[in-house]
Amino acid sequence: MLTIKNLQAKIGDKQILNGINLDIKPGEVHAIMGPNGSGKSTLASVLAGREEFEVTGGEVEFLGKDLLELAPEERAREGVFLAFQYPVEIPGVSTINFMKTAVNQIRVHRGQQALDAVSFLGLMREKMKLVEIDQSLLNRSLNEGFSGGEKKRNEIFQMAMLEPKLAILDETDSGLDIDALKIVSNGVNKLRNKSNAVIVVTHYQRLLDYIVPDFVHVLYKGKIVKSGTKELALELEAKGYDWIKDEVSVA
């Protein structure tokens, strides 16, 4: 589904990604872990198409298309979804109105009919249950004055509405208490199926107790320096990241 080959990227003069290789198949969950500043969020941003980052080398193929050639909205329409670490507050734009626009632009792109108001509300009610989000929250301006937990639930709600093929969760666990973490993880798990894939970017193991990964990759200095199964995450939790750094410097 997603093939990343030797991906390099910088912001300003600062090189952040130094040759990432990753292959993701439908149905898989990949965790990207690593110490602060290792490039985890940059990888997520580059995949979503954030313009501040300049791709300086490598390629990314998503479902047969050159992902790097596409504008952010085109990537979304092809099925890429980024759950933001810091969801943006947009005063004056309600989640409902904004989601209606998004869902319909994506549907039109896929050759489907735009949903009318009634069908849209029906779809919305169904997806709201997944993340236990209240409609009153969705009537309000997007993320404005939301708690950290509400913002993250709203991200997963949007993911549910847009039914992406590849969801990238960027530090979705940050700022969540344990109850919110369970709700958010449950939502993600319910959305998983054989034909979609998830990239979980996280600093800590605790999210991976709930969203269990098939593969764990450790990012350090802009490269994947170690890959393994979910046990690797537990090892990192127990031992920290220093032994990885040592291993890399020895090598």
Partner: peptide, 29 residues
């Protein structure tokens, strides 16, 4: 707000529409 614009784009909303939405939200107050 470029970050807000990017956010809307990552949900599949075209840049022109996203821009119009944000301006409308600003003016709509």
């Amino acid at each position: 707000d470029e970050e807000a614009l990017f956010y809307l784009q990552t949900r599949g909303i075209g840049k022109d529409t996203a821009l119009a939405m944000m301006l409308y939200a600003f003016a709509g107050e």
